[in-house]
Nucleic acid binder design. Structure first.
Lengths: 237, 237
DNA sequence: AATGCTATGACAACGGAGTAACAAAAGATG
DNA sequence: CATCTTTTGTTACTCCGTTGTCATAGCATT
C-alpha cells in the first residue's frame, strides 16, 4: 500500500456555476490541492496552454462550448493523457457513455458530496500515476511497461501477451484481490470467451511466475478471484 | 471498475401518499429490488431498527414528522451512512439546501418519472459503494474489504467465503443485532437453504473468530439473531 | 507451411456449502 | 421445581461447483 503523503494535486476546474465552483475551490484547496479556475471553455484552453495539471474537473455544460468537445481538445493539447473527471447534471445513461467516449476517466452527477469529489480526485490521480510510471515494482517482481517485459528476482519471465496483461492487472491492484469477473472484464470486456479460458492462462502464467521459485506469488481466493502476495508476507493465506 | 451483477437493492420507502407509494413499489420491485414500506416516520424508524437497507427513499412531507428530522435520526441510528434519496414536492432552492444539510444524498422533485427514480437509485448505490472505506474497524477486529480478509488482534482469520460475508454483515450492522431472517436474506436472498445452514456457518465462524481468544465477540440473542460485541463492553449482554 | 498465441474441452483434485442427526441450553408450562 | 418444547451448538458426511492440469484445435501472422 502506498503510504506517502500526497504532495497535493494541481487541478484545473472548469465550471460555469460560480457558487458551486467556489465551494469546490474552498474544499479542495483546504485539502491541500492547488486549483486554477476557468468559467468558460475558452479560458480553460488558454490556461491549459500555459500550465500543466495533474487532473481536470470538467463541467459537461458550459456556456461557450460543450464539455465533451473541450475534453477532446484538452487531450489533443497535452500529449500525455491527463485524467479528466466529468461533472454532470445529466444522468441518463446515454450521456454518461458519451462522456466516457470523449475520454473522461470518471464522472460524478450533481449534486454530490465534496468529500466524495476529493476522494475521487485522489483515486484518479493515483491510478494515473500508477499507469504512467513505466516501472512497476513489487518486491522481487519488476514489470517494465515500456518493454512489455516482467522479471522476478532478476530472472526475465517469458510471458505471452495475455499472461503479461493478467500480471499487470494484478500488480496494479496490489495488494487488493481481483475478482474473476473484474479480471475477465479487463481482459476481454463485455465478450469473454465461452470457455473458462482464464483458468488456463492463469496456469500458464504460474508456470513462468511461480514454478521456478520456492514460494508462489499468485494466490487463488476460492470462489472469488486472485491476488498477488509478496514472498515475505506468506504468513497469511 | 467493478463489474459484478447487481443483486438488487434493499430499499426502505417512506411515503404517506398511498397511490404514489404503490407505483414506486411496483416499479422498483419489478426492477429487481426489495422494498419495505413505511407510511409514517414512526414506522420508518421502527423498521430501521430491525433491518438494514442499501438505500432510503424519503418523502419530505410526512404526517407525523418532518422528513429532514427523520433523515437525521436515521443517520444517527445507523453507524454506516446509508444513502438517502429525498422526494419532495417543494422545489425552492431553500428546501433543497435544507434537505442536503440534513444529509440527503440526492433529491427528486415530484412529479418524476419512475424510470428516472430507478436510475438514480442505482447511481446512488454505486456512488456509495465506491466511496466506501475498504477498512472496517471494530476494536480488535479489522476487516479489509479490498482483500476479503479479516483479522482479530492482528491475527489473520482463515474464514470461508460465507463466514467472511456473515462477519461483514454483522460488522456493518454493529452495534445493532441482526435478526436471523435478515442475515439469511443478505446471504441467500429469497432462496435460503432448506436446512438451517446458518447455524453451522455461525459455528464455523466462531471457531475462527472467538475460539482462539479469551472472550467472544459473536453473541447469540436467543430467539432473535446475533450481534457483535466488543471485548471491553462484555459487561452488558 | 511454419510459428506463435489463444480458446476449448476433458479429466482429476480439491474445497466449501448444505444436510442431518444428536447434544446442550434456554424458555415455557404446569 | 419438574418436565416439556423450542432454539441453538456441535459434528460428520455427501454432493457439487471451482480450480489445476494438460493436450489439442483454431486462427492469425509471417
Amino acid at each position: 500500500m502506498k503510504n506517502q503523503t500526497q504532495p497535493g494535486l494541481r487541478i484545473l476546474l472548469v465550471e460555469d456555476q460560480q457558487a458551486l465552483a467556489c465551494n469546490i475551490i474552498d474544499y479542495l484547496t483546504s485539502a491541500g490541492h492547488q486549483l486554477d479556475y476557468a468559467a468558460t471553455g475558452a479560458l480553460a484552453l488558454q490556461l491549459a496552454k500555459q500550465h500543466s495539471y495533474d487532473l481536470v474537473l470538467l463541467d459537461l455544460m458550459l456556456p461557450d462550448m460543450d464539455g465533451r468537445q473541450l475534453c477532446v481538445q484538452l487531450r489533443q493539447l497535452w500529449l500525455k493523457a491527463v485524467p479528466v473527471l466529468m461533472l454532470t447534471a445529466l444522468d441518463s445513461l446515454d450521456d454518461k457513455l458519451q462522456g466516457f467516449a470523449a475520454g473522461a476517466d470518471d464522472y460524478l452527477t450533481k449534486p454530490f458530496e465534496l468529500a466524495e469529489l476529493a476522494v475521487r480526485c485522489l483515486a484518479l490521480s493515483r491510478r494515473h500515476l500508477l499507469s504512467l510510471d513505466p516501472l512497476l515494482q513489487l518486491g522481487p517482481l519488476v514489470i517494465d511497461r515500456s518493454q512489455q517485459q516482467a522479471s522476478r528476482a532478476g530472472k526475465p519471465l517469458d510471458l505471452h501477451p495475455l499472461g503479461y496483461r493478467i500480471l499487470v492487472v494484478l500488480a496494479e491492484a496490489y495488494p487488493a484481490l481481483v475478482s474473476r469477473s473484474d479480471l475477465s472484464y479487463q481482459l476481454w470486456g463485455d465478450e469473454p470467451p465461452d470457455s473458462d479460458a482464464l483458468r488456463a492462462h492463469i496456469y500458464l502464467l504460474r508456470q513462468q511466475l511461480d514454478k521456478p521459485f520456492a514460494d508462489s506469488m499468485l494466490h487463488t481466493v476460492y470462489g472469488i478471484g486472485f491476488k498477488l502476495v509478496l514472498p515475505q508476507e506468506q504468513a497469511d493465506a
